[in-house]
Structure formats: C-alpha cells, structure tokens
Design a protein around this nucleic acid. Structure first.
Lengths: 145, 145
DNA sequence: TACACTAATTATAAAGATTATTATTTAATA
DNA sequence: TATTAAATAATAATCTTTATAATTAGTGTA
C-alpha cells in the first residue's frame, strides 16, 4: 500500500542525484508509514534498534534533504521541536493542547484569504499555514474526572 | 497615544498582584511601542543601554508573566526563536520569506473553519492560528535586479 | 518614613534542539 | 572491482530557553 509511495519517493530522490543509503531508506520508510508527525528525536529513537550506530545528525541531514526535494514538510508549533509530515497534499492540522496529538483536517484551501492578503499588503504570496488548537476527545474525557 | 495602552496594561498587571519594576516597565513599554514583533533577544539588546545589568532571564520571565495575564501573544514561526506580539486583538500575520518582516493583516476570523474542525475531529476547539507567507514588495524590487 | 514580607532580579548553570566539523565509510557508476 | 564523490558517525559547538540560588527591591502597613 504505502510501498508504492516509498518506491515513488525513492525514484524522486534518485532523479535528484541523491544516494539511497540504508539509513536514508529507513528514515523515509518510517516517515511514510507514520500517521503521527514525528520529531527528529522520535525518528532517531524508533530506528536505533535497526541502526544502533546511527547518528542524530544523520536523521537531521536526511530530513533536510527530503525537505529540499519536497518530500516532507517541517511543522513548527509552539513546543520545542519541529515535526515532520510526509503528506504533502494540502491539509491542515488540529492540535490537542493537552496531549500534543496532531490530527489531519481537510478543508478547501483558503485562496480567498491569500488573494486578499496579496492585495492589501502588496506581498507576492506563496502559501499559508493554519493550525487549529483545542482538546481532543480523549483528553476531554480524562478531564471530566 | 500608546501611553494610554501602557497605563492600562500596568493597571491590569497591578490588579493581578504583579509588581511594577523598572525592568518590567521597560520591557512592556518596548513591546507596546514596537510595531515589529520582537524576539526575546531583540528586546534584551534594545534595553541593554538603559539596563546594562539586566539578565536575559528577566526578559523571559516578564514575557511569561505578560503572556499569562494575556497582555501579549507568543508567535512561533519556522525560525529558531519565538516572537512576541502585544496586539491581542484578532488579526493574522503576513511574513516575508526573504527578509523576515511581519505585517499585520486583518481578516474576519475563520469561525466556520473552527466549527467544522470541531464537528469532524470531535475536538473542543479553543482557537486557531494562520500565517501567510510570501515576498514583501521591498524584497520583490531587490530581486528584480 | 521605616519595616517586613515576598516577589523580582541577577548571575550562572543546565537543558534541549539543531547545526557544524572532520575523519571514515560506502553507494553508484564505469 | 576500482574510483570518487557523497553520506555517515562521532563529537563539538551554537543557540534558545529554563532552572537554581543568592541578592535586591517593590509595596502595603504601622
């Protein structure tokens, strides 16, 4: 299923002259299969069984490469570390302020906002980001106690 | 003009039992008068003439206090450090990807998005954030060369 | 105005995330 | 298989933010 995406991503990388190393492959595979939006450290920890000698720098290096190629997006929220999202289709995120869970949320892209901003500010607008904050149902239940 | 806002803010602080120290006053005044959205370090550097002995921790402490009282908002973008905004009225930001300039942008709040997200994800939504990215007119002109 | 109480400040260390450096290893290609 | 440039590992360094502890200083009260 997501194996197809993986092959496609590897193809994209090779086309850009990027070598496919076992570590790189593993980071990419983990990202594609993860539905959460992991931090660099989470990726590092998830792969340390498979690659006991892997360096954190390798994770960061690969994430940078993937970003440059356009395979992943970096998400920066209020908390300390960045998160990485391999779903590059247009979607927004809903974030739980209590547990940090991030849920994808599909909504028609706010083109109107972009065009108005362009008019008002004279910026050449390239994109926008939006996040919605709240409490997930699980945490709501916990709080009820 | 903004002196009125300052007095009001000081009143709010006092009501919450927060002491008005010279450093705290200076950080608050600087924030209220700044139209940019400064980082903690920028505030620190701006005030080091007036307070040569002030500690960075003091800046952070005060920003935390102001945040808790609701006088300022913390903005976290892609770059390394947080920015602080004393304009707590509802508005969005347009950010220049070339020079980092941040411009306020007024747009009716996207309540519809919030309510749909609430329905779809079963979150108890509290708020949202949105930023628009692009190139400011100044940087557009520079690039034309 | 002086006093006492407690919060705020300073200085410093520490933590945590990310980037830089350099020697070593290795994937891809001929 | 040999070559070569790119990737990795190990480590140090940087940068932002928070924690700690001792000192200083607001603010209400007598």
């Amino acid at each position: 299923m997501s194996d197809e995406k993986l092959q496609e991503a590897i193809h994209t990388l090779k086309d850009s002259g990027v070598r496919i190393t076992p570590q790189r492959h593993a980071v990419l595979e983990f990202l594609l299969n993860s539905m959460t939006h992991p931090t660099a450290d989470e990726i590092y920890k998830a792969l340390e069984n498979k690659f006991p000698n892997m360096s954190v720098a390798t994770v960061y290096n690969n994430l940078r490469v993937f970003k440059e190629i356009g395979l992943v997006r970096e998400l920066t929220y209020g908390d300390s570390s960045s998160r990485f999202d391999c779903n590059t289709t247009d979607h927004y995120h809903v974030i739980c302020e209590s547990c940090g869970k991030i849920v994808d949320f599909h909504y028609p892209s706010l083109n109107e906002v972009e065009s108005l901003a362009e008019k008002v500010t004279e910026f050449d607008v390239s994109h926008h980001r939006m996040e919605i904050y709240g409490t997930c149902s699980h945490c709501q239940a916990s709080m009820a106690h």
